[in-house]
Design a protein around this nucleic acid. Structure first.
Length: 550
RNA sequence: GCGCCAGUAGCUCAGUAGGAUAGAGCAGCAGCCUUCUAAGCUGCGGGUCAGGGGUUCGAAUCCCUUCUGGCGUGCCA
């Protein structure tokens, strides 16, 4: 919030001096405290258009800005930076503001209720969710929460691929396991089939309820029945895993349903009308190369069935029809070859392909005792999302997934996630919050807590650490906006870690609650209570709990 | 071959969208609990930001190029 206030002050001064400000300048917290509490590059950025030397412009700006009593000192430095040193009174006022805004602090209308659709996880309903899905879930959900907090109107959706080839294979795998249970010799289990234990368990369940009746159906009915059974079981499994992880979707969109609604034919006809389909080798192709793709793509295979692309495109078009103006897809690392054809289709159908935004999450490697845990979905050797959550807990899992930026590989150290000391950032941060709660509780017992905090109690906060903490918490609103706009939730995890470090250090250096000096204690209690609120807000945005005692 | 992503301290990673002397945690070493939670804190060492060019007041950040690693390059999804 301070950055915004300073930015406003600078704009005011620029207007008063009749300087043009056509370019964006920044207000930053310099990494070296000698350069002030905040600094701006305004004079350097705007000097050219105003035909002035940066230093002259800075000097004039400073003269104007000095009229404001929020500043203790303003300096010109280097090639034209303006460095601000803030008056303690200004910090106190800001801190009081934050305190009063309570758990609403940082909320804004920045997003102007823009409808944004976040599609993530969208795993095949052919097995339990794996850890890449878990990463996607943590990332997408956190982004959703933050976007909503800063005024966007986002929605979370899960696209169910319940109509393709993979589902056929799933049904076949299930049938084989069922025959096996009923005593048939099935020989080698096919390579392509799903080898996971869960298929056997599904077969057991089906066998116990329906047994041999399955094989009295016609083949078509049997396959359909097996598909339906497996899909509903596995979808429920996935839904429940996600819920346990704190992730709830506004929408679950079924490919099968879309197909039944005829959208596939619609899309084919749109593309044909737009004159970008042709027939070759008994298949129907989309000439995506006209719109930037590497090669043309098949829409309808020579056997008359449709490729994955067509209903998926149809699904994306329904998002637009439902009024979303920005479509964010969060994909796994193995899908980037898919994007050009989607974008090409948008262009071919005269939609702005910038509406479609793809975020790629890189792969997750699990490490145990320094060894990489190898996984193979086909062979059924996977560590599932449920496994992970039950071992390390929801909090640690979500934190570890959020704390890395999307397009970097993530090494997940299982032992580290389980550690209960300062090596483990989750505990480090949660402990900072618990520590505050504990101090507040103790203060109440010692009768040091005032009935109600008042703004003028702040004036006792004079230590540099105290002002630095205020500076840090005041930064939350701008940071959340940046996180939403740049789609980078990992920055919230970093922020919380930094704030936790400041709190722990402050605690170690100063006695916060001290019966010998009531005034200072109250000021400090007020400050840490404000910090506590920041932790509550931040953790809630990450979907991580805030224990009051640890 | 082509495309996408990555390469920052011994390890895991940040680096506020071009800013000032590149930061944290871990690991290593040395310290701190009759006092609000030691799940914490303090100090010390550690760098050719993969290499090389360029753009400008200024580059880890932008452009070109080389190298290394991951992934993709199906009428799979």
């Amino acid at each position: 919030m301070i950055k915004q206030i300073l930015h406003d002050h600078i704009i005011e001064a620029l207007d008063k001096l009749k300087y043009v400000h056509d370019k964006d300048f920044t207000v930053e917290i310099p990494n070296n405290t000698e350069f002030g509490d905040y600094s701006t590059n305004a004079a350097m950025v705007l000097s050219k258009t105003n035909k002035m030397a940066p230093k002259d412009m800075a000097t004039a700006l400073i003269k104007e800005l000095k009229k404001n009593k929020n500043f203790k000192k303003i300096e010109i430095a280097g090639p034209g930076f303006i460095n601000f040193f803030l008056a303690p009174g200004f910090y106190h006022q800001v801190a009081w503001d934050i305190y009063e805004q309570d758990l609403e602090f940082g909320k804004s209308e920045h997003g102007k209720e823009e409808k944004i659709l976040l599609e993530f996880v969208s795993a095949n309903p052919t097995g339990p969710l794996n850890i890449v899905s878990a990463r996607a879930a943590a990332f997408g959900d956190t982004l959703y929460r933050i976007m909503k907090y800063v005024g966007y109107a986002p929605a979370r959706e899960f696209y169910i691929n319940d109509a393709g080839n993979q589902v056929d294979i799933l049904a076949e795998s299930l049938e084989l396991r069922l025959r096996e249970i009923q005593g048939e010799k099935i020989g080698d289990f096919p390579y392509e089939a799903y080898h996971g234990e869960y298929v056997k368990q599904l077969a057991q369940k089906l066998n116990s309820t329906e047994g041999v009746r399955i094989f009295m159906m016609t083949e078509k009915d049997r396959i359909d029945h097996l598909k339906e059974f497996a899909l509903s079981e596995l979808l429920e499994m996935q839904r429940s895993s996600l819920e346990k992880f704190g992730v709830v979707f506004e929408g679950w969109v079924s490919e099968k349903t879309l197909r039944m609604e005829g959208v596939v034919e619609e899309v084919l006809s749109y593309l044909t009308e737009a004159d970008c389909t042709y027939e070759k080798d008994d298949a129907i192709w989309f000439c995506s190369t006209k719109y930037g793709d590497d090669k043309d793509r098949v829409l309808m295979k020579s056997d008359g069935s449709i490729t994955y692309f067509v209903p998926d495109l149809a699904y994306h078009l329904t998002k637009i029809q439902r009024g979303y103006t920005q479509l964010i897809d969060i994909f796994g690392p193995d899908h980037h070859g898919y994007v050009p054809r989607l974008k090409a289709a948008f262009k071919a159908l005269n939609y702005d392909d910038n509406m479609l935004e793809i975020i790629f999450l890189q792969q997750v490697n699990l490490f145990e005792s320094g060894e990489r845990v190898k996984m193979s979905k086909r062979a059924g050797k996977i560590v599932t999302m449920d496994d992970l959550v039950s071992v390390v807990g929801k909090d640690a899992a979500r934190y570890f997934f959020i704390a890395r930026k999307a397009n970097a590989h993530l090494n997940f150290d299982l032992e580290l996630a389980l550690k209960r000391n300062n090596e483990n950032p989750v505990y480090y941060c949660q402990y900072a919050h618990a520590r505050i709660c504990s101090i507040l509780k103790k203060a109440k017992k010692d009768k040091l807590m005032p009935k109600a905090f008042k703004a003028d109690m702040m004036t006792k906060l004079t230590k540099p650490e105290e002002l630095a903490i205020i500076q840090k918490i005041a930064d939350l609103p701008e940071m959340l906006v940046a996180i939403a706009d740049y789609r980078e939730p990992h920055r919230l995890a970093n922020y919380v870690e930094e704030l936790a470090a400041m709190l722990h250090k402050y605690y170690a250096k100063y006695q916060i609650s001290n019966p010998k000096s009531k005034d200072i204690s109250q000021a400090r209690l007020l400050l840490i209570d404000a910090v506590r609120k920041i932790f509550v807000i931040s953790f809630e945005l990450m979907g991580i709990s805030t224990p009051e005692k640890m």
